[in-house]
């Protein structure tokens, strides 16, 4: 499902001394089935932006169209919208509230008025997607580890089978193995369900690994928008916005500064390894011929 945002502005606490222009004339088109990473420092407007996409915030001005539904129009069907656009908040495990995992995940589908069989199927499907064994179904979600709780919370959103999935910092606070696992699952889900996925992150490494397109927010505006390689090749601009580039990008930059010609768009370990090996092989060939 495609998303079209035009001339979006949002002002917090308008008319008060704390007035803050959180979004300034944001224009974005996100195609059906795109996997987009949104980065930006704290206060750059990224969370404000995503809260507009399922109607939690109403813009001060501008329009948002999701699929063929203009959600900023008066009388737009918010209930329908929220079934289409699933939003997973930061630290979603704090929102678990039911006695059992089954009940917690089925809360959404139940409110959609689905039959018991359908609810059952969706709960199982959602648990499966996030890698939770069905044997946990009747356990209390509060007995689980932090990472497992988070997966229950994500499953609760997936059980509504949204067309657009938005995740705010899904890997925050997890250890490296936990981050890797949750990102791999989101990626697999994306490939299988062909959803449109937007995910907000502070971690350039995570975004570099998962997303096909990166949007960088700064001071309420879209500062950069492009493929990961295009974005990470602008290390200086990112730094000035309080962001970091992956360590590999910094290494490539440093080597280029020292006069070694490398492609500035390399940002993963695998690509760096392959490129360095190839260059060394070429060098040995050349030296071989000279002898």
């Amino acid at each position: 499902m495609a998303i079209e945002i035009q001339g979006l502005n949002y002002v917090y606490m308008e008319g008060s001394p704390f007035e803050k222009h959180a979004l300034k004339d944001v224009n974005l088109t996100i195609g059906d089935g795109e996997f987009v990473g949104i980065i930006g420092h704290t206060g750059s407007g990224k969370s404000t932006l995503i809260q507009h996409l399922n109607g939690l915030l109403q813009p001060s001005s501008g329009t948002i169209k999701i699929g063929d539904m203009v959600i900023t129009e008066k009388g737009a069907d918010m209930k329908k919208l929220r079934q289409k656009v699933g939003l997973v908040f930061q630290y979603p495990e704090h929102q678990l509230f039911e006695e059992t995992i089954y009940k917690d995940i089925s809360y959404g589908p139940k409110n959609m008025g689905l039959s018991q069989d359908e609810i059952d199927e969706r709960v199982r499907e959602a648990m499966n997607y996030v890698g939770l064994s069905e044997k946990y179904m009747n356990r209390s979600p509060f007995e689980l580890s932090g990472g497992q709780k988070r997966r229950v919370a994500i499953a609760g959103v997936l059980a509504m089978r949204p067309d657009v999935l938005i995740l705010d910092e899904p890997a925050a606070g997890l250890d490296p193995a936990g981050r890797e696992e949750i990102l791999t699952q989101i990626r697999a889900l994306y490939l299988e369900r062909k959803m449109t996925v937007l995910f907000v992150s502070h971690s350039m490494e995570d975004v570099a690994r998962a997303a096909g397109r990166i949007i960088v927010m700064n001071q309420g505006s879209v500062a950069l928008d492009g493929k990961p390689a295009e974005i990470f090749s602008q290390a200086e601009a990112l730094r000035s916005m309080g962001l970091d580039v992956p360590q590999i990008t910094r290494l490539i930059d440093e080597l280029r500064r020292r006069g070694i010609s490398l492609d500035s768009s390399i940002y993963t370990i695998e690509k760096a390894k392959a490129t360095i090996q190839m260059m060394l092989a070429n060098k040995m060939n050349r030296e071989g011929k000279e002898c």
């Binding site: 490296p176 290494l251 760096a272 390894k273 360095i276």
Partner: peptide, 14 residues
């Protein structure tokens, strides 16, 4: 379940 810095991993793989 831990990571190493990316440059450390790059050298390890090379």
């Amino acid at each position: 379940g831990l990571d190493v810095p990316q440059v450390t991993e790059l050298c390890y793989l090379l």
